[in-house]
Computed example of a mutant assay.
Amino acid sequence: MTVVAERTTWADTAERAARAGGAVLLEHRGRVHDVRLKDARVDVTSSADLAAQDAVTAAIHAEHPDHVVIGEESTRSTDDAGGELRWWVDPLDGTRNYLHGVPFFAVAVSATVAGEAVAAAVYDPLRDELYRAIRGRGATCNGRPLRVASTARAAEALVVVQAQSADPAVIAEFARLMRAMLTVSAGVRFPGAPALVLAHVAAGHYTAYVERDMDPWDVAGGRLLVEEAGGRVTDFAGRVRDASTRHDLVASNGLVHDELVAATGMTFEEGG
């Protein structure tokens, strides 16, 4: 099997798995859920997350029984070995949105090989929109090619800045980043659901997305969508990072990228 054929096979699996997870989320939507906090107040998981992850994992293993699947709700470590290929699953991207009835959530499934994302699917079940990417073959939404925004200057960019933590230090850093992006951009948003945000960056709806310390299941697939739609993804120092590791993220249309990377380093005098 050629590299392209193999990656296409993985993308097909990712699509079927994401759709399976999405069907579970629609089935569980509006029900009373068993909800568990992962931190003091903010980060949560629910029975819907767990049921969707079971469906996604089963769909992957039905086609690739020996592959390693690492999900946000699984007990596997990101260090688990299983050859070079790993599957990353966020079964409910945007749990808080889902639990509160906000119609912005998704299922994210991606495959990485030697730290590079090679196939991905991000599925928005409410809109029945399937975002899909194959390394070297482009990105699509329901079969339509995606292209990042043509915005040429940060001053005209619509930027997403997010955080999910009850930690005061993380909140303080988020406030600093929010202020920095408000200073250089045309506007800032916080919709939640990182993988779906990246899909919308790939589609040209948002110009960029900036967040600290993102896990692979949150952003590996969305990162591939952005890159294959003509965008650029780095850390806050402008470096391309291993997609299978936790890292800071600046994802953009490429044209405003250097300005945003520079802005992540902005500091402010007390009271200034």
Rank of each mutant, 00 (worst) to 15 (best):
L99P: 01
G22M: 02
D43K: 15
A52M: 01
W88I: 04
V44A: 08
H100F: 11
D43M: 13
E84P: 14
G21M: 00
V102H: 13
I70T: 08
S74H: 09
R19Q: 11
R96T: 14
V44F: 08
W88L: 13
R86E: 01
A18Q: 07
V89G: 03
V89E: 00
L99G: 06
L25N: 03
G30T: 07
W87D: 03
S46V: 00
D80K: 12
R41L: 14
H61E: 09
A17Q: 09
E27W: 06
W10F: 15
R96D: 10
V32G: 07
G22K: 05
A58H: 10
E84H: 14
H28C: 11
T8G: 12
L85R: 15
A55M: 03
G71P: 00
G94W: 05
I60C: 06
L92F: 05
L85E: 10
D54V: 10
T57K: 12
R96H: 08
W88S: 03
H61L: 15
A55F: 02
A40W: 07
V3D: 15
R86L: 09
H61Y: 09
D49G: 02
V44E: 06
W10H: 11
T13P: 01
T13F: 08
S77G: 13
P65V: 01
D49K: 03
L92I: 00
R41F: 14
G71R: 05
H100R: 15
S77C: 08
P65T: 01
L92W: 07
D12G: 12
R96Y: 04
W10A: 11
T8F: 13
P65L: 02
R19C: 04
A58Y: 08
D49P: 02
H28Q: 15
